[in-house]
């Protein structure tokens, strides 16, 4: 037993299988139709919504580490936050003793969308066909029913993916509140998706910089472009290394799990937004157009950042406190 950060075989296998599923069912060009709604059946069949639940609860018996890496892969494909909401909803249902509901959610039979409710704004993302929602509020995460929800379609940022506004947030009731463990998983997995967005933006930018020619050579041979790309790579490396630290801490119930997850949640949105911005810049005119996929990364980063929310990071003790300040 020792420290080891080499990805294990199980993780490699899961990611390999997930990649074929994502390539087949969620290619990026599906989003050229802005009314497109991501179906959840392929992910449900894959067991994505109960990957890290113990087998006795009907789960696949993997851990938060595999789950985090799976969500990074989903993030690359700009999956609707419905996938996140379904994963979290199954957890909340189990925590509150609703095993049947958990099964219905995990199998994709009950669709659960994601939502955000802050002081002035109450939104649901792709709510079509959803019976429930996992809504992020300033006080935490709630699983609510949408039977009596009073909502109306809204135009998403930049005429983006389907969005509805809750006319009266009280119409969905209080629902069931996620416990601390599920709230932490929410931060971990949403951050993982942001990492996926940052990676996809980096790769698209590097690809374009290597092929687009101006002044008779690929623009990626110019230092100004290279350095943008290097900054994107640095951001990805920081978040991805921190994701492993946080995921391992969560998986093992380590004392520093709260700190590591909060650090990750602080970094991931910043890097995703930075990479989306630089990706647009490197693409020039086409990056600013709605005809290329580039702009989708930016909008997804904004969406996920808001679904993630903020925590008071400074109030959490650091595992690297100087010795003089280590609590006894």
């Amino acid at each position: 037993m020792s420290y080891d950060l080499t990805p294990g075989e199980e993780l490699t296998h899961i990611l390999y299988a997930a990649q074929s599923l994502l390539d087949a069912n969620y290619p990026l060009d599906r989003l050229r139709d802005s009314a497109h709604v991501d179906g959840m059946a392929p992910l449900a069949d894959f067991g994505a919504f109960l990957l890290s639940l113990p087998e006795e609860s009907g789960g696949a018996g993997f851990s938060a580490l595999e789950e985090a890496h799976l969500h990074a892969a989903l993030g690359r494909h700009l999956l609707a936050p419905t996938a996140l909401a379904s994963t979290l909803a199954a957890r909340i249902a189990l925590e509150t003793g609703r095993d049947g509901l958990a099964q219905a959610i995990a199998s994709g039979e009950t669709r659960v969308c994601a939502g955000v409710s802050t002081r002035n704004d109450h939104f649901l993302f792709e709510p079509d066909g959803a019976a429930m929602a996992v809504i992020r509020t300033d006080d935490g995460l709630n699983l609510v029913g949408l039977k009596d929800a009073e909502m109306e379609p809204a135009t998403a940022m930049g005429h983006g993916r389907p969005l509805s506004r809750l006319k009266d947030v009280r119409s969905v009731g209080n629902g069931f509140k996620a416990d601390e463990e599920t709230a932490r998983l929410h931060a971990l997995l949403t951050s993982a998706q942001l990492l996926g967005v940052a990676r996809a933006a980096r790769d698209l930018a590097v690809d374009y910089a290597g092929t687009r020619e101006q002044f008779g050579r690929p623009i990626g041979s110019f230092q100004a472009i290279k350095h943008h790309c290097a900054n994107m790579a640095i951001g990805v490396e920081m978040v991805s290394a921190q994701l492993d630290m946080a995921a391992i801490a969560v998986r093992d119930g380590r004392e520093d799990a709260a700190f590591q997850t909060a650090a990750l949640a602080r970094l991931a949105p910043r890097v995703a937004l930075q990479n989306a911005r630089l990706c647009i810049q490197i693409h020039g005119g086409i990056g600013f157009s709605a005809e290329a996929d580039v702009q989708l990364f930016l909008k997804q980063a904004h969406l996920l950042r808001n679904y993630l929310g903020a925590t008071d990071f400074l109030s959490l003790p650091s595992p690297m406190f100087p010795l003089a300040k280590v609590p006894a």
């Binding site: 920081m238 590591q260 650090a263 602080r266 650091s318």
Partner: peptide
């Protein structure tokens, strides 16, 4: 908070 998160990430990269 941002600096602290980045310091955590530099530690994570050092580990990696």
């Amino acid at each position: 908070s941002d600096l602290r998160a980045e310091a955590a990430a530099v530690r994570a990269m050092t580990y990696r």
